[in-house]
């Protein structure tokens, strides 16, 4: 379980303090697929990056399974990160390493034996359905395949949590669906808790059981996806839902025309 309490984060930009997160409070329960949605610049990326301390919050607490992580450093911080696999919009794979080596990376840095690594990597390749791409380099793969490699890499150390930073935003709708399907099956099969940020309502509708709507550094509303999407309380969330459904209609219309 992750508890976020009174979280603040600001950046200094040309001498000016920019407050990016303002008093964020959330509860993410084990087994959740927790979506954080909002327009660009709302602070979602900063928020998810605080969860594994890629960004250090200025104030507030993040309690992961009973431990306040905001002051962790050194080995304890690295161990926390190994328990939170992260995937990214641009995949961020090692370009000069094969698919196999990319997935082996977290295992290698954790000092596992060659035999163990080999067994685990083959398992993961099977899981993400990329056995035949074992010796390929990332530049030879499609976007969806790259993201599958990244997911396998994030899963290598059997983390409890997966952080997804706009993982489907660079993918076409069909590939997005297959990646989301994979994430959902991982959640079901292994009870993996997934925290994802996105600006696409479709992603939330497709897989999230909970959702938080963030704007201008504040959580406007959060709760069960069904309740929030069907009975939003605030005008902002209503507006956002309306706009995103309009956008979907428009795309649908355009497709029909062409």
């Amino acid at each position: 379980m992750i508890l976020i309490r009174g979280l603040y984060k600001s950046f200094e930009n040309e001498g000016k303090e920019m407050e990016v997160l303002k008093d964020v409070n959330l509860v993410i329960e084990d087994g959740d697929i927790f979506g954080i949605i909002g327009p660009s610049g709302a602070g979602k990326s900063t928020l998810i990056r605080c969860l594994n301390l890629l960004e250090k919050p200025n104030k507030g607490e993040i309690i992961v399974d009973g431990v306040n992580i905001t002051s962790l450093n050194g080995k304890k911080l690295r161990d926390l990160r190994k328990n939170m696999g992260m995937i990214f919009q641009h995949f961020n794979l090692l370009q000069n390493s094969t698919v196999y080596k990319n997935i082996a990376f977290p295992l290698e840095i954790s000092g596992y034996s060659k035999d163990f690594i080999d067994k685990r990597v083959m398992e993961l390749l099977e899981l993400v359905d990329l056995k035949d791409k074992k010796d390929a380099y990332p530049s030879m793969l499609s976007g969806g395949q790259k993201q599958r490699v990244a997911i396998a890499r994030a899963l290598a150390l059997n983390p409890k949590y997966i952080l997804s930073d706009e993982a489907t935003s660079a993918l076409d709708p069909l590939t997005t669906r297959s990646i989301l399907g994979l994430l959902k099956s991982l959640n079901k099969k292994y009870g993996l808790t997934i925290i994802l940020i996105t600006h696409e309502m479709e992603v939330v509708k497709e897989i999230c059981n909970k959702v938080a709507f963030i704007n201008d550094g504040r959580i406007i509303e959060w709760g069960n996806t069904y309740d929030l999407l069907n009975f939003p309380k605030s005008a902002e969330v209503k507006q956002f839902i309306k706009e995103s459904s309009l956008r979907i209609d428009k795309e649908g219309l355009l497709k029909n025309v062409s």
Binding site: R78, K82, M86, F88, F105, P106, I109, S110
Partner: peptide, 11 residues
């Protein structure tokens, strides 16, 4: 971003 991914993996 590749370096950051490695950091996120606990390197």
């Amino acid at each position: 971003r590749i370096i950051e991914a490695a950091v996120s993996l606990g390197a």
